[in-house]
Design a protein around this nucleic acid. Structure first.
Lengths: 108, 108
DNA sequence: TTTATATATTGCAATATTACGATATAATTT
DNA sequence: AAATTATATCGTAATATTGCAATATATAAA
């Protein structure tokens, strides 16, 4: 069909999948890395930094914002974006738990 | 277009995006969580566990395996799957670095 | 060797994603 | 107010993803 069976999974599973989906693109990884480096910036800075058109960057920022990975604050005629550690913490916790719990000896 | 501009990004950025993409689906999150619980299992166990058809589970397992998140070992007529902590470690390291480096005071 | 069991592959329909040109919106500057 | 600057939205084409029925493959059991 092409539609994920969201209803059959828990809200936690859907939350993790949505956060992962927001980062499932190299341009959005690059945006996150850039924001980590400069702490905060405006959309135009990213357009200059990455080899993608302005509407494309704007769309990627929207997806990161919808997922809660970044936040945007209106500052005059531009919008200041920065990372939201809380959302990334959810992913970090999930992967940390896996790392500590995986028992290589019980693997096949 | 619908095609990611892979060539314009670093291999590290593409690697992180591909790992995230492998987990960007609640069914695959559920598979990972199930594998974490039972340490290892066969495809049929997951088909019983999740509300998806056998070909769909098989496809999800293939994607997780291609991304390096799980490994499969042939055991007679079935295939034993388990988590590969190394791949998940890459994501964990990335997110840990973000968490420790994000400076909330420099946010907008 | 026929049958059963376990998983993978193929083919397809429905939907989602990626990218961008054109254009809209909204605040700033002149 | 008109021009400029910064970002968002719309529309669209190309491609990718999701899910499954049908079928193929491959090993084990009878």
């Amino acid at each position: 069909m092409g539609i994920t069976k969201t209803d059959f999974f828990t809200s936690k599973q859907n939350q993790l999948a949505n956060l992962a989906k927001a980062l499932a693109n190299p341009a959005r990884i690059a945006i996150v890395e850039y924001l980590l480096k400069v702490d905060s910036c405006i959309c135009g800075d990213i357009v200059t930094e990455l080899p993608l058109a302005q509407p494309t960057i704007s769309q990627h920022l929207k997806e990161l914002k919808n997922a809660g990975i970044i936040q945007g604050t209106i500052e005059g005629k531009s919008i200041c974006y920065c990372l939201n550690a809380d959302a990334i913490q959810i992913l970090q916790t999930f992967f940390s738990k896996i790392i500590t719990k995986v028992d290589k000896n019980k693997c096949c």
